[in-house]
């Protein structure tokens, strides 16, 4: 990120500044090579839109989502309380995150443990930047391309956010082709509930293959995603069918960054 410096909460607080929003990067966004591209794209969008944002940097730790979904409530609450101490210490009010799992956990499960913040998913945040005119995009780069969107479970069914990513897609001048199973009927990519971190149980197919097959049926140029884990699963699926030359798996943030010529 040579264009600008990403500042941490510690750095901002040291000089008495308060960010508009805290960008919660998440573990995938921090460490996974594919997800880091999404992180960078979103950071660029924030910078371009003139949003004063900060990250926790090395003070951020796993929200505890994979621990909670796999039944390790102890570990979850340990993580949650450590994070809440940090967040409350900085008097954080608003959080945006590119990961629906972090989004869900911070939004729904931290309040009971003393962490009360306004939490939004990056698709909601980008959508309001577009609505407020702080960011403008031209749809040129996606003209004539067939694009579909895979709903992340923890954004859609878990929190009822279906429209924000679709509205962004519309603003990119894209005719969205919906998957057969979409919105509340969407099929999981197979990564949720800590499945990302283990082999699947015995069956006759991998879930991401089933979902990718469904997406490939409509012969898209781009499969849009809103979750780093879905992104990995769908990317692996596309590779499995040896379609990586024809079909791209892109996060909504990456598409916006591309359209805004970032």
């Amino acid at each position: 990120m040579s264009e600008f410096k990403v500042r941490t909460m510690a750095e901002m607080t040291a000089v008495g500044e308060v960010p508009e929003v805290l960008f919660w990067v998440g573990c995938a966004g921090s460490f996974d090579d594919r997800a880091k591209k999404i992180t960078k794209a979103f950071a660029k969008i924030l910078h371009l839109s003139g949003v004063k944002f900060a990250v926790l940097g090395t003070e951020e730790g796993c929200t505890g989502d994979p621990a909670k979904r796999s039944g390790n409530e102890f570990l979850f609450q340990m993580q949650a309380m450590m994070n809440i101490q940090v967040l409350n210490g900085y008097e954080v009010k608003k959080i945006v995150t590119t990961c629906p799992h972090c989004f869900n956990t911070l939004k729904n499960e931290y309040p009971e443990l003393g962490g009360n913040y306004e939490v939004v998913h990056h698709t909601q945040f980008i959508n309001s930047l577009l609505n407020d005119g702080k960011l403008s995009v031209s749809g040129g780069s996606f003209k004539g391309k067939k694009i579909t969107f895979h709903d992340p479970c923890y954004l859609g069914r878990a929190n009822g956010v279906y429209e924000a990513p679709r509205e962004i897609i519309q603003k990119l001048d894209i005719q969205l082709t919906e998957l057969r199973r979409c919105k509340s009927n969407a099929l999981c990519c197979g990564a949720g509930g800590a499945q990302m971190f283990k082999e699947a149980e015995k069956g006759n197919k991998e879930i991401n293959i089933e979902r990718t097959e469904e997406a490939l049926e409509i012969k898209p140029d781009v499969i849009a995603a809103g979750c780093p884990f879905c992104n990995t699963m769908m990317t692996d699926g596309v590779k499995n069918f040896e379609k990586e030359g024809e079909v791209q798996v892109l996060d909504i943030a990456e598409m916006v960054a591309q359209a805004a010529d970032l």
């Binding site: 990120m1 040579s2 410096k5 990403v6 941490t8 990067v25 966004g29 921090s30 460490f31 880091k36 992180t39 960078k40 950071a43 990250v55 940097g57 090395t58 951020e60 730790g61």
Partner: peptide, 11 residues
């Protein structure tokens, strides 16, 4: 943990 912000210094 110390590498969490490495992405910010990459291109």
């Amino acid at each position: 943990q110390a590498d969490r912000l490495n992405w910010a210094n990459e291109d």
